[in-house]
Design a binder for these strands. Structure first.
Length: 698
DNA sequence: GAAATCTCAAGAAC
DNA sequence: CGTTCTTGAGATTT
């Protein structure tokens, strides 16, 4: 199967600098209502939102992470092209299907109908993050684009300008703190379209988790509220509708809420299943479908993952469906033969409603018909066939389903469980790549060992809760230890990263199923240790992992310093808690909730001066490779002793991680970068492949 | 545990 | 430009 790159193409390891400025009221202008060729009046003195998140900084007006400068500095220059439908030229192929003429395709990917000359799927690298992106053009010279750097947000720091006449929600803002060396504000060389997509998803989910924490009663829907904040702040990607591939969104990407797909431009309907727009074909215009969400209740052929039978929209239980809106667009798409994005739902027992969304790539409609539904009314049906040559999407899920039912059906297994049963779930060892029979011997353990006994500097914290610790319980001392909030949501998701988390300890009265005992319960998902192509062994997971999910502890022998640890070429199994700020980039942006800017946690967190050596003894964590754009970060946690200087190192998912994606974390700056010349010989060349790769690590 | 009920936001249409 | 309509998701209750 297709192995996803281990390296998400950006780093979230830059410093968090936040600068949220008042919103302007421009948002509703883009994209213009379909078919409406109204003119656009440029905003007067647009205030804008500029946020530097873990993934970079962006603004409303030029909503780019560092290095993402708008291609069209002037709003006026590009606005009105967006008001017009996409212009697509098609030619008929031999089959009688209308087919798009092939146009230049910078990505070399199989996507779409690359109509010429006035519509072109944008090269991914220049796709922007904001609504001003000048594609889908029916009027402007499409090939006249030059990649320009405008004086964009990176260098602009405007204070608290106020929005005049904005009917949008205003968000209290604050000037960015001038941190030493604003590295994150420097232009980056990255033109990776995935970066803004991941920034949006991460910002959204951090907000959602925080809202959930603030309102445990769940009277409000945190997903909707976070979505509204993101929408009104224009914190979204790919705002212009397009046919085919969406820059920065890959086949197999997973989503936990419909609104997430809206925010990244994959499917702009927050509720409806069919997304569509008016496109121009020569002198004609037609509504065409852009994407559908299949909630999984259709009479789909289960075994054939390349076929989807999709039902039209409209209340089929009350009346015949009508050939309008989405249904009409699907019908037109059958004749225009344009590519349509398909999002399918998959069962995920780890989430409350039991399902998540998987982007399954591009399909075309090959057939349509009308049939009587159960209630006796006419329902439209559309037969979608998956375009060939795409990486596996939902097929990965189907494959893993089979593996879970029958583990022996997993080919190339060297060992069914390298933990020999001591993890909650088996961890199989597989090699789909070469003849290596396994890693060098080590003793599998789920707990760290200390070179000398921990001498607690203070008594072990403990609470007197009779039952599980409850949020808002002022009597729970563990709650106080953690700043008044439980660090995990009710389903065990880490809400935000902290210098240190105090889980309930062995001295606490609460039971083991207490919400504040997440990491001590151990691994909960199904891992496999696998052979990578160029980085030895690696770690990945059969399950989809939601951002904030506990992965595992770094297990090994804990010693106070690296002195005395024998170094050799083979010994790359040392964890050093350098660069303790790495997780904080993941946290929510307080300003978006009207909260004061948070203090820089990296300044108050004490540097940790121990190492963990997993050469001879360890768990799955010793197989996790380095990436400069990781999908996992570590978080110090204490629960079984009172010495805050020796916390457990616990790994959590930084992003939603699709099944079978390699798990990686940032090993930290290389020893040379840290000024440690003695240790700099340990520095290794990095093969992570990230566009933000630093070249060397640890 | 499945079905009914409730509430909700975004985009399309008007 | 503002208002209404359309669309089911997601949570809760039965």
């Amino acid at each position: 199967m297709e192995e996803r790159s281990n390296c998400a193409p950006h780093s979230w390891s830059e410093s968090v600098v936040l600068d949220v400025k008042p919103l302007r009221s421009l948002a509703p202008m883009y994209p213009a209502p379909l078919g409406q060729k109204n003119t656009f009046s440029p905003p007067n003195a647009p205030p804008f939102v500029s946020v530097t998140t873990p993934f970079g900084s962006f603004t409303t007006e030029s909503a780019f992470p560092p290095g993402f400068c708008p291609l069209f500095p002037s709003f006026a220059a590009s606005h009105d092209v967006n008001q017009k439908p996409v212009d697509v030229n098609f030619v008929n192929n031999a089959n009688g299907f209308a087919r798009a003429s092939e146009g230049p395709d910078i990505n070399g990917s199989l996507h779409n109908a690359s109509p010429s000359p006035s519509f072109q799927t944008p090269p991914a690298a220049i796709v922007s993050f904001n609504k001003e992106e000048p594609l889908a053009s029916g009027a402007s010279p499409p090939y006249g684009r030059t990649i320009k750097r405008s004086p964009c947000s990176n260098s602009i720091h405007i204070g608290n300008s106020e929005t005049e006449g904005s009917n949008k929600k205003r968000i209290k803002t604050r000037r960015p703190k001038a941190t030493g060396g604003d590295l994150s504000l420097l232009p980056s060389s990255s033109h990776d379209p995935r970066e803004p997509v991941e920034v949006v998803l991460m910002t959204f989910d951090a907000l959602r988790r925080r809202l959930m924490q603030l309102d445990e009663s769940k009277r409000l829907r945190p997903d909707l509220k976070a979505g509204t904040i993101m929408m009104s702040s224009d914190l979204r990607a790919n705002m212009v509708k397009r046919i085919g591939q969406v820059p920065g969104v890959a086949v197999g990407d997973i989503f936990y809420f419909r609104i997430e797909m809206c925010l990244v431009g994959l499917h702009s309907q927050s509720v409806a299943g069919i997304d569509y727009m008016t496109a121009r074909f020569g002198n004609e215009e037609d509504p065409v479908a852009l994407g559908v969400v299949s909630a999984g209740v259709y009479d789909n052929e289960e075994d054939n993952v390349d076929v989807l039978i999709y039902s039209g929209q409209g209340s089929s239980s009350k009346d015949d469906q009508k050939l309008e809106r989405g249904n009409l667009a699907l019908e037109k798409s059958l004749h225009r033969a344009n590519e349509i994005r398909v999002i399918r739902s998959a069962k995920d027992p780890f989430v409350l409603n039991g399902k998540i969304y998987v982007y399954d790539g591009l399909y075309k409609i090959h057939e349509s018909w009308v049939e009587k539904g159960k209630s006796g009314f006419n329902t439209f049906k559309y037969k979608f066939l998956r375009e060939p040559g795409q990486p596996d999407g939902i097929a990965v899920w189907k494959m893993i389903e089979k593996w879970k039912q029958n583990p022996s059906s997993r080919a190339n297994v060297i060992l069914p469980d390298i933990s020999s049963g001591i993890e909650n779930m088996p961890v199989c060892l597989v090699n789909d790549v070469d003849d290596e029979k396994g890693p060098r011997y080590f003793a599998y353990s789920t707990t760290v060992s200390y070179s000398k006994p921990i001498t607690s500097s203070r008594p072990l914290h403990s609470c007197m809760c009779n039952s599980v610790c409850m949020p808002g319980d002022s009597n729970c001392s563990c709650l106080h230890q953690n700043g008044g909030f439980l660090p995990y949501s009710s389903n065990g998701i880490l809400i935000s990263c902290k210098p240190l988390i105090y889980e309930c300890s062995v001295s606490c009265q609460c039971p083991t199923n207490c919400r504040n005992r997440v990491t001590q319960r151990g691994v909960q998902v199904h891992f496999e240790v696998f052979r990578t192509r160029d980085r030895g062994w690696g770690l990945r997971c059969w399950d989809a992992i939601r951002a904030g999910t506990f992965i595992c502890e770094y297990v090994g022998e804990v010693t106070e310093s690296i002195q005395g640890v024998e170094y050799d070429e083979e010994n790359d199994h040392i964890f050093q808690p350098r660069h303790a700020d790495q997780g904080f980039k993941w946290n929510y942006v307080p300003e978006l909730l009207g909260e004061p800017s948070s203090v820089d946690l990296s300044e108050i967190s004490k540097p940790l001066s121990f190492i963990i050596n997993s050469k001879n003894m360890g768990n799955i964590s010793r197989f996790m490779n380095h990436s400069c754009s990781p999908n996992v970060f570590w978080q110090p946690v204490v629960h079984d002793h009172g010495d805050d200087g020796f916390p457990h190192i616990m790994f959590f998912a930084a992003k939603h991680i699709p099944p079978m994606t390699e798990l990686t974390y940032d090993y930290g700056p290389s020893s040379a970068e840290m000024g440690d010349y003695v240790q700099s010989r340990r520095t290794k060349e990095c093969f992570c492949g990230s566009v933000k790769c630093r070249g060397f690590f640890g």
